[in-house]
Design a protein around this nucleic acid. Sequence first.
RNA 1: CUGGAUGUGGCGCAGUUGGUAGCGCACCUGGUUAGGGACCAGGAGGUCGAAGGUUCAAGUCCUUUCAUCCAGACCA
Length: 492
Amino acid sequence: MAKEVTKRSENYSQWYNNLVVKADLAEQSAVRGCMVIKPYGYAIWEKMQRILDDMFKATGVQNAYFPLFIPKSFFSREAEHVAGFAKECAVVTHHRLMNDPDGKGVVVDPEAKLEEELIVRPTSETIIWSTYKNWITSWRDLPILCNQWANVVRWEMRTRLFLRTAEFLWQEGHTAHATAQEAQEEAWRMVQVYADFARNYLALPVIVGHKSPNERFAGALDTLTIEAMMQDGKALQAGTSHFLGQNFAKSFDVQFTNKEGKQEYVWATSWGVSTRLMGALIMAHGDDNGLVLPPALAPIHVVMVPIYKSEEERNAILEKMEEVKKSLEALGKSVKIDDRDTLRPGFKFAEWELKGVPVRLAMGPRDLAAGTVEVHRRDTLEKETMSLDGLGAHICKLLDDIQANIYQKAYDFRQANVEKCDNWEEFKEKIQDGKFLLCHWDGTAETEQKIKDETKATIRCIPEDSFVCEEEGVDIYSGKPSKQRVVFAISY
RNA sequence: CUGGAUGUGGCGCAGUUGGUAGCGCACCUGGUUAGGGACCAGGAGGUCGAAGGUUCAAGUCCUUUCAUCCAGACCA
């Protein structure tokens, strides 16, 4: 019945775009490169936000909010940071419009030119560190653990719904610490939070590791990442956590007096995940019938579709469904009864599958008479007829099974597409075939760059918690000695 | 910015050698239907991206221009 989405399908992009639009998640805005997130898509994002927010708070992080606009001078304090973002910034130059003297609408008032231009934040390190300067004077003020939920703007050349848009929603955590070790521990703690979230809620197996120097965040000493594999075999960076050292503290002159009474620069981290996670969810689990949502993130766990001919049948079935709905809601599940009278059941089945609702219950006159219901699970598309007795417990278990199965499926897929590779010719072929390749690397940026130029493949990470492989070997490209394997893949 | 392509009802498309615009989906009305995306009948909706030119006549030919998409460079 269901066609599998084949790996490296030529129409993978098209499939993705169609799915995003048809499942009512988001659409392209008339504004260049920007996205409209629709209510159903936003409900999923809100759920992600809530879960992440609780996880952050459990580690002592507090939410705050900083300005959207960054004075150009702040932005340019940290040299590497500017270089990394300069090419994709939106800049505010004026603060007023006026009527066009020629009577054609409005024009920018040339009188209203800003003394200093404002950058629309592409990320908030600079504005936050200029603020932290005022907050920190003593070791007693540390650590500061702040997170903000915000939008940021990066003027990308080519955009793609959820994966790369000119404006996107995210959270960015910014912490300040007294010692390098504390900051490094914080960066590691947060990448672990991301990994937990990806695995347990998104049902996304991810590889945790360090970025190579080439792929690091602009201004970071170390970037930790979670890397996921999509169904076309490409890698998606799903979240990052940076150890910033003292770079920003030095640029913004943020010093504190330590216990010995000496002035010291503060140590920093920053970490973030974005609406890109929505893209990850879609590309990792979706099939040709549409979205497949892990129950942990589904805004609707169970949808109920009544089947009837007459008005009496309809009323009787809806009444019964209301009962079932209440019993499931009492178990903490979110339930929707699709009582739309103008659509046929088959249409509703297809529509809810498209939206990825994990479980569907269908009930018609036959079920009503027999005290049964048809239970359909989205992940496998299997259905069974079962008694209404004990339905609640069964649904709870089923949702758990679905969550586990979705993860397992993604995990198996990844395992089947990760392999060691020690031969350059093989590398070139297999990397195009959508594999993650574990290869020896000599640790130089030059080799990494040459490999990228020849194959588009990049080092996704130097793994820390899966596929760790410390052994002697020689670089796949240069033949120079290497002490461990790293993960190569073509990425989004 | 470089290379390639495309612009025709809300969406997806067709439109022959130039002859005055059509199809599918969606939409509206009425009826029949309803256990996997219903069917029949009727209806509304387009100055063919824009500007200029050739012609008796341009969606179609020519020039200019704008926009979008794909592949590069950039990137969560």
